[in-house]
């Protein structure tokens, strides 16, 4: 299967956000009270660490779940590998990697705490390696933890645990959640902030910023400055985020990784599909995207199911390579949602 699995090569455009230090927006931090204020960090027990994560209301930014629930419910013991997710494989976005590079002590402390809870066999920090347009070198170790460099074509994030032997479980926790856990243990600080990359070709001062959750996109863009009026503002990653129209009302959440302002949208101009088959070759799950798009447009959900549409991860690689600029992945995701609705109503 791995012979057929492909992806796309993307210009990462992570400079200068990655090497610049993180900007912290002026704010008031919130603190919580806990029953064990004076106990040293090394002596915290498993339950106490989970309690810390619960009190600090930490959300894992890689999947949007609460960290304490994840720590409590996920398997532990010898069969488990703990992976710290700092893989930023989308262009412009580097919020997770910058945490590992500019605040390594905090990240390693948070990882240590999670290691204590899960007692895994192996721990490593995963980072994306193929940033070809900058000379930035990824450190080999952060704290005492080995940094595993995930390479290859986009999307790399789904391949983080691919090399693990079968029958072994993996727990993936985001790097920012680790940082917040370390802060909760050291300063008993609540998670009120999130890390966001502000980038794009019209941003004056592109960099990673730490902003309170609930800040509007307009304020974040004002913080970094704009050189001209953008034609598209994107909340989230450049490959999977969504375009917004009201930047004064749209706020960032704990899972938002970036705010991107672009001078030109690629527009709605599109040709008909000429059937070149590039989408089929770009698909990381080896799906027949070209035929699936035709089925989705004609509403043939039974055929879509036969072509394994539920395996689609919505990475957007097919839309990226399409020479006719067709919104292939958007069409497929929409059809998937319609299918789920039809299944719920019992029509399918």
């Amino acid at each position: 299967m791995s012979l057929f699995v492909k992806g796309i090569f993307l210009e990462q455009k992570k400079e200068p956000m990655l090497t610049r230090s993180t900007l912290v927006m002026r704010q008031e931090f919130e603190y919580f009270d806990c029953d064990f204020p004076d106990s040293a960090i090394d002596e915290l027990s498993r339950e106490q660490i989970i309690e810390l994560a619960r009190l600090a209301e930490i959300v894992d930014e890689s999947d949007g779940k609460m960290l304490w629930e994840k720590l409590e419910k996920s398997p532990s013991g010898e069969n488990v590998t703990l992976i710290v997710d700092a893989v930023d494989d989308e262009p412009y976005i580097s919020s997770q990697m910058s945490v590992g590079i500019h605040q390594p002590e905090k990240l390693s402390l948070g990882t240590e705490l999670c290691e204590k809870v899960l007692s895994p066999e192996k721990v490593y920090i995963a980072m994306y390696r193929h940033i070809l347009d900058s000379n930035f070198g990824i450190p080999k170790k952060i704290g005492k933890y080995h940094v595993k460099k995930i390479g290859g074509l986009y999307p790399a994030e789904s391949r983080v645990h691919r090399h693990l032997p079968k029958g072994k479980n993996s727990v993936i926790i985001g790097a920012c959640a680790m940082l917040h856990l370390a802060r909760a243990a050291e300063e008993s600080r609540k998670m009120t902030t999130c890390f966001v990359t502000v980038a794009g070709d019209v941003v004056k001062n592109p960099r990673n910023v730490e902003v309170p959750i609930g800040t509007t996109a307009e304020k974040i863009l004002e913080l970094c400055g704009l050189t001209e009026e953008p034609e598209a503002i994107i909340l989230g990653g450049s490959m999977t985020g969504r375009a917004i129209f009201e930047p004064e009302n749209e706020t960032v959440g704990p899972t938002t990784r970036g705010v991107i302002a672009l001078s030109r949208s690629y527009g709605t101009y599109s040709y008909t599909c000429i059937g070149c088959g590039r989408c089929d070759h770009a698909c990381p799950k080896a799906l027949s995207v070209c035929m699936m798009r035709k089925f989705a447009e004609n509403g043939k959900f039974d055929m879509l199911e036969k072509y394994d549409v539920d395996m689609c991860i919505g990475c957007g690689a097919c839309s990226y390579v399409c020479p006719s600029r067709i919104d292939v992945s958007a069409t497929l995701i929409k059809a998937k949602k319609q299918m789920e609705l039809a299944k719920k109503e019992g029509n399918l």
């Binding site: 009026e229 598209a232 503002i233 450049s238 490959m239 985020g241 375009a243 129209f245 949208s265 958007a330």
Partner: peptide, 21 residues
């Protein structure tokens, strides 16, 4: 800022090659 904003589906970066090229 609001007037110029356009709708577009993800992904927001696209390959420079097109049918025309």
């Amino acid at each position: 800022m609001k007037e110029r904003l356009m709708f577009q589906n993800a992904p927001h970066v696209r390959q420079s090659e097109s049918v025309v090229t």
